Amino acid sequence: MTQRITIRDVVQSKLQTLSGYTFPPPGTTEEIDSKKLPAIVVGFATENTEHEMHGGTERQLDLTIAAVVKTSGDVYAALDQAAADIESVLQDDSLEGTCDLFLLNQTQFALDQDHPLGEVRLTYSAQYSSEPTDF
Rank of each mutant, 00 (worst) to 15 (best):
V69W: 13
V10N: 10
T17G: 05
L63P: 00
T22V: 08
Y21T: 10
L79V: 09
I32D: 06
V11I: 15
I40F: 08
E47N: 06
D62L: 12
I65Y: 00
S34W: 11
E52F: 10
T71H: 01
V41K: 04
G55V: 11
F23N: 12
S94P: 01
L37G: 05
A45D: 14
V69K: 07
L90F: 10
G73V: 11
E96D: 15
T71A: 01
L63A: 04
I65A: 00
Q60T: 15
E30R: 04
Y21H: 07
A78I: 01
D93R: 12
L15E: 08
G20L: 07
Y21P: 04
E47C: 10
L79E: 11
D62E: 14
S72V: 08
T98I: 12
L90P: 00
G43T: 05
E87P: 12
T17P: 00
A66F: 03
A82M: 06
P26F: 10
T22E: 03
A78E: 06
D80E: 08
T22C: 01
Y76W: 14
Q16R: 13
I65F: 00
K70M: 11
H54E: 09
I40W: 04
Q60P: 00
N48R: 02
K35H: 13
E96A: 04
T98E: 11
P25K: 13
T64Q: 06
E58L: 09
D93F: 09
A39T: 07
L15G: 13
R59H: 15
V69E: 11
S13F: 03
P25W: 13
T29V: 03
P25S: 10
F23L: 02
D62I: 10
T64A: 11
Y76H: 10
T17M: 07
K14T: 07
G20C: 14
V42P: 00
I86K: 06
G97L: 05
